[in-house]
Write a protein that binds this DNA or RNA. Structure first.
Lengths: 328, 328
DNA sequence: CTGAAAGCGCTTACAG
DNA sequence: CTGAAAGCGCTTACAG
């Protein structure tokens, strides 16, 4: 910028004015400055600008896995809202590791993102308190923050699961299994609670062998599903706690002679093309991202004061697998 | 930092030493500095650091759509390589719009990313020449750069398509259709070229009605597919130019009475669960991202000088749909 | 309409 | 082992 000023024979401030489109520059002066910019290939350094201005026009997003299709629409929605506010997006994967989540979130804060959106991997977010006090707007999505009071945007995990299981019960099922994620994950326990509520409301018992929580790796889910449908008290229907579980369960059920009903939490591409189509409790991941980022910018604008909790509805999408009658 | 120095009764440089773990500080001095950091809630401002050091430890990634499952693994692979080099990732979607690609890429350069990975939407990247001259390491992925000489990492689109079509021909098909993306997209024309090469090598004619290029919207692809399988010279097999086309074609073929064979470019989740399983020419999107980012850091390390073109192999995955015999 | 000075929060190069 | 000064490339607040 100094070079441009010298070449154009003007002061630094005048170059700054031209670059930022501020008023108060003669057309002739502006022309000279622009010519110098062109000749020298000048490109404004936003890092310096940021240092002086305070705000970075950047939003940080910590999610579980950039490669997970479930988070794609959420990621894109955050980007779009940020873009509408002139902000760029820095994101990264926690890989479901609380330490990595922390490391990444703090690295983003050190870059002075204006706001931070976190899909928590850990259960203790007190490490973010100093950052939040220092003015980093922070919103948690998909799972609530641990041990701090903060904005959070969730799906109705409890209600969605309860509705999905009630749908199976209404179809005549009395022995229904639940296969879900690790119990340390909030969504997993909420959905399990929904399952238990629906069973209890129908006066149905839940055998211990009908509930299986743990890793969503096919290597764990497949045997669990097989045991449930072939054990001494075989279930006639399975409720799958999330999309990865659902996919594995579909594979297991496809290999059975006897039809077993299935409802899965989370929608996924091609669910309607399978035979039977897979009935799901659908969330709206794009809406999660959109609502969370809107909240973030409201906070940055100073219009939100106390932390709020927003719960987005889910939607039951019947496609066939959840409407299969009990095999017995 | 000034406040910390004052509180600890030391100089600025000593605080800097402690914060950066540099040697040459008495344990006692370090203790005092750390106590002051704790008390004041000091957090180093990386923007200032960046301004002084020159490098930002940031990689920019411009892709088509953060929500597209095809780019998820690529995105994650770029992140992992960047992370291994201590760099963060800023990314964004071009939405297949050349102007938006340009705007985003230049915004990333203004933030002084050390390197830029671009999945091109446009065909003219001369706008990046000043940036590249100024030292921004740039690598193009999936499609080559337009009108500039730059590193590029591609899949073997031509060879993959040729192999997929040859597979159909080997299965006895003689009338094969091709449904692909817009002809302005490099991958689309390369794959079409592969299709034509395979047909020519087998001495097979290609009727004009067997080739359809354009938007990958279901609203365009579905009628095109229907016309191809029901026209006066109906095809007995379809080669789908990418994953989005494949999915729509699967839907169309599922509604037919007569079986039509299908091979699709790009693998996708659950392709093996459909009936029949969908035979695909698989790329390795994670490898594209990994190789490109490795190249980027080689360039930053100064060990790459001339632009290189890397082509990654594809893999034919037979699952049933590509092995259906001709219906007639 | 224009510009000189100070400062954003760090690091570099140097001196003690 | 420690620190004062200069500077990274901008913008702010002010004066002319």
């Amino acid at each position: 910028m100094k070079d441009v000023a010298a070449q154009a024979g003007v002061g630094l401030k005048t170059v700054s004015r031209v670059v930022n489109g501020e008023p108060g520059v003669t057309p002739e002066t502006e022309r000279r400055v622009r010519a110098a910019i062109e000749a020298l290939g000048f490109r404004r350094n936003d890092s310096a600008r940021v240092l002086r201005k305070g705000r970075t026009a950047t939003v940080g997003l910590v999610l579980e896995d950039l490669a997970d299709p479930f988070y794609g629409p959420l990621n894109r929605a955050v980007e779009e809202v940020a873009r509408a506010h002139g902000a760029l997006l820095i994101n990264g994967s926690s890989a479901e590791d609380p330490d990595r989540e922390r490391e990444l979130a703090l690295a983003l804060c050190a870059r002075r993102v204006d706001g931070l959106i976190v899909i928590p991997a850990g259960n203790d977010h007190r490490y973010l308190e100093p950052e939040m006090r220092a003015g980093v707007a922070t919103v948690f999505v998909d799972r609530p923050a641990g041990r701090i009071d903060a904005d959070v945007v969730l799906s109705d995990n409890f209600g969605g699961a309860r509705g999905g299981v009630a749908h199976l019960i209404a179809g005549g099922h009395r022995r229904i299994g639940f296969i879900g994620d690790h119990p340390r994950i909030h969504t997993a326990t909420e959905r399990l609670r929904g399952y238990r509520a629906a069973m209890a409301e129908a006066g149905l018992p839940v055998a211990g062998s009908w509930v299986s929580l743990g890793s969503t790796e096919p290597g764990r889910v497949a045997p669990a599903a097989r045991a449930m449908v072939t054990g001494p008290e075989p279930v006639t229907a399975v409720f799958a706690g999330n999309n990865r579980v659902t996919v594995t369960v579909v594979r297991v059920l496809a290999s059975l002679r006897r039809p077993v009903a299935l409802v899965g939490f989370d929608d996924f591409e091609l669910a309607d093309l399978l035979r039977p189509g897979v009935t799901v409790v659908a969330q709206d991941p794009a809406a999660l991202g959109r609502v969370a980022t809107d909240r973030l910018f409201q906070r940055l604008a100073g219009s939100v004061l106390t932390p709020t909790r927003t719960e987005l509805p889910t939607r039951l999408v019947p496609r066939g697998s959840g409407e299969l009658p009990p095999a017995d």
